[in-house]
């Protein structure tokens, strides 16, 4: 039953998960509530990164507009709250349906293109949405809106409590990872992976690749909308800046650092990205220079990201262990 623990990446990811599960306790013991905030942020963006990795890492659809879905999810909390509607079921329902609809419409058009054109058109759609919200004075335009009260789930969940919010996000993330695991090993996932490697062949095998990719895109966008729902609640604030294309770029960095080949990679990548940013910005005001340098080195030398590194170390370990067993 615990056979999967023989593999190094699985052990590391299980340790990370265990650490995340007890983190609030550690934070309370060390009386450093700030770190709970940082961890919550990591988990929320990890949901977004995992969703983006579904289309990039598994489907080969490189989107530079994924932050749009974070924005949609967040505005689905902020706009109702602006009208004193705080019901969490409405917020979450809106976030899911709006991001799914946006993914369906923009995906249906974007997926007619490939490669560089796909990157550009997803970017264009995201920027369109960005400028739409910049021009909406009713919802604060450029300055955004403050959310005075977090989503209320009829008392089932008190998201105002930082620890509750943290665990809600953590459980969502773990549930999502399990879903991804099932998805990529199921028939649907195999088709998506096949499309990444050779779409023409998949068509010649009888798959309507456009529809499968579109379905995948909608699933990804919807999940990212849920991340946006949490981010809006977490920051108590929404602004168009959330959907700026630089954030889409950061999400790509996160999954590249973590490794696109695995399901858990983006989680590690997100943690690495945000922790490094936090650490460096505390050291010097020129932190972005060092940050950029580290990212470049990681991308150039760390092929396959953290996940790739772990897999590499694992195969080396077994390769070294093998001859000893033989003798």
């Amino acid at each position: 039953m615990f056979k999967f623990l023989e593999n190094l990446p699985a052990r590391v990811y299980l340790a990370v998960t265990a650490l995340l599960a007890v983190a609030p306790l550690l934070v309370t013991l060390g009386s450093q509530p700030f770190y709970l905030d940082l961890l919550t942020r990591i988990l929320i963006l990890a949901i977004a990164a995992v969703s983006l990795n579904l289309i990039i890492g598994f489907g080969g659809m490189i989107s530079l507009g994924h932050a749009a879905f974070i924005g949609i999810g967040a505005y689905c909390v902020g706009i109702p709250a602006h009208y004193d509607i705080f019901n969490g079921f409405i917020h979450l329902g809106l976030a899911i349906s709006c991001s799914a609809a946006f993914a369906l419409i923009t995906g249906a058009i974007s997926l007619r293109t490939h490669g560089l054109y796909f990157i550009m058109i997803t970017l264009a759609f995201a920027q369109m949405l960005y400028f739409t919200f910049v021009s909406l004075d009713e919802y604060g335009a450029d300055d955004g809106l403050i959310i005075y009260q977090r989503s209320d789930f009829n008392g089932l969940l008190n998201l105002e409590n930082p620890t509750t919010l943290y665990y809600t996000v953590l459980v969502t993330l773990l549930g999502l990872l399990y879903l991804m695991h099932r998805l990529v090993h199921a028939r649907f996932g195999r088709v998506i992976i096949g499309c990444k490697h050779n779409e023409k062949r998949m068509q010649a095998l009888g798959f309507d690749t456009y529809r499968y990719k579109l379905t995948c895109y909608v699933i990804s966008g919807t999940i990212c909308g849920i991340a946006g729902f949490f981010l809006g609640n977490f920051t108590n604030f929404i602004s168009p800046e959330m959907m700026d294309w630089t954030h889409s770029g950061e999400l790509i960095f996160m999954i590249v650092i973590g490794g696109t080949a695995g399901i858990f990679g983006p989680v590690v990548g997100t943690a690495f990205f945000l922790l490094l940013e936090e650490m460096l910005s505390g050291l010097t005001q020129y932190w972005q220079l060092i940050f950029g340098l580290v990212l470049i080195l990681l991308v150039v030398f760390g092929k396959g990201g953290v996940h790739g590194l772990l897999v590499w170390a694992d195969t080396r370990q077994t390769a070294q262990a093998q001859p000893e067993n033989d003798s």
């Binding site: 099932r182 090993h185 199921a186 028939r187 649907f188 195999r190 499968y212 379905t215």
Partner: peptide, 10 residues
Amino acid sequence: HSYKFWAPVS
């Protein structure tokens, strides 16, 4: 169709 999201192929 392959819109099956849960059961592993293996």
